[in-house]
């Protein structure tokens, strides 16, 4: 008896330790970001965040263009991806939720999540950017190709598997009894989806969308390859720009002064806080939805 109890206590404590280690890591990352960026924040104060000028040669560092770039590409990507991921989720969760075809489809969608970011980047450069250029020619816009819109397109493709997989699982878990209740009243399949499946699954589906948004905000490699790497405030959906992540990837290696490095770390802190804030807001929304 005692032996069992001792083992249990030890087991629980070892798990607790592992869990604490993860929290410790978050704190350590936060500490490094705060510590590393203190020089930049001391020098510029709040204008580090609100400043529109990022000019390492002149020694001026304002991050607003990249904050806007990150939010714009991520939300645009989300907007583009939702119709696709929800269709996939409904098809695999509600229509073809059994059998071989469904299994193949499901693993293909999951495979999409496993393709390395750099490969998405290459693919986008060779196939998406020319398409965007073609669109720009039709719209009488300088056919640059690379820019916010191209980045959002490739991001949309990259995040589809995340929101689709979670929404699919949530849709599969909607109790059969509830669906039968609606069918037995004479509901059509569309009505069952609209009135039962989606309302019951909405908080889970939303959680999946939030996860996808988090991915989109932090995605670096593919975005860096197609966003055009331009350090000015984006003034249209097609303008070449930078996200926080793509700027960090591009400029970290060449940062030659301590203020430069500190400003880049400060951008990292901004992204960290932004992601945490969006996660927090998402959780609040999910809680309200699931009431």
């Amino acid at each position: 008896m005692n032996k069992v109890l001792n083992f249990d206590t030890g087991f629980v404590w070892s798990m607790r330790l592992m869990a604490l280690l993860v929290i410790g890591l978050v704190v350590a990352v936060g500490y490094v970001l705060v510590q590393g960026s203190s020089e930049a924040f001391q020098k510029f104060g709040l204008s580090f965040i609100t400043g529109r000028e990022w000019d390492p040669i002149m020694g001026s560092y304002g991050s607003l263009p990249f904050i806007v770039g990150s939010l714009l590409t991520a939300f645009l990507a989300l907007l583009i991806s939702i119709p696709f991921s929800m269709s996939i989720a409904l098809y695999l969760g509600e229509f073809a939720n059994k059998g071989k075809i469904s299994a193949i489809f499901t693993s293909l969608v999951e495979l999409l999540a496993g393709i390395p970011s750099v490969i998405y980047g290459f693919w986008a450069l060779f196939y998406l950017v020319p398409v965007v250029r073609w669109i720009q020619e039709r719209l009488d816009i300088p056919p640059i190709g690379v820019g916010i819109f191209s980045a959002a397109l490739i991001l949309a493709i990259m995040i589809i598997p995340f929101s689709a997989s979670i929404a699919r699982e949530v849709i599969r878990m909607v109790p059969v009894g509830l669906k039968e209740a609606a069918y037995a009243l004479g509901a059509t399949r569309l009505e069952v989806i609209k009135d039962v499946v989606l309302p019951v699954g909405k908080s889970g589906i939303f959680a999946g969308i939030m996860l996808a948004l988090g991915r989109a905000l932090g995605e670096t490699m593919a975005v860096t390859m197609v966003i055009g790497n331009n350090n000015i405030m984006p003034d249209s959906l097609f303008s070449p720009a930078n996200t926080i992540a793509s700027l960090l990837a591009n400029e970290f290696a060449e940062a030659d002064s301590s203020l430069y490095v500190s400003s880049l770390v400060g951008l990292g802190l901004v992204l960290f806080v932004m992601t945490a804030l969006i996660n927090f807001l998402g959780k609040m929304l999910i809680r309200r939805l699931s009431k």
Binding site: P175, G177, L178, E180, A181, A182, Y183, A184, L185, G186, A187, T188, D195, V196, P199, V200
Partner: peptide, 21 residues
């Protein structure tokens, strides 16, 4: 017409299944 059939032939299930509404 299935919808009309199920309107005229109602059903009550083994486990009560109210909608979460």
């Amino acid at each position: 017409d299935l919808a009309e059939l199920r309107r005229r032939v109602g059903m009550v299930f083994q486990r009560s299944n109210p909608f979460p509404k």
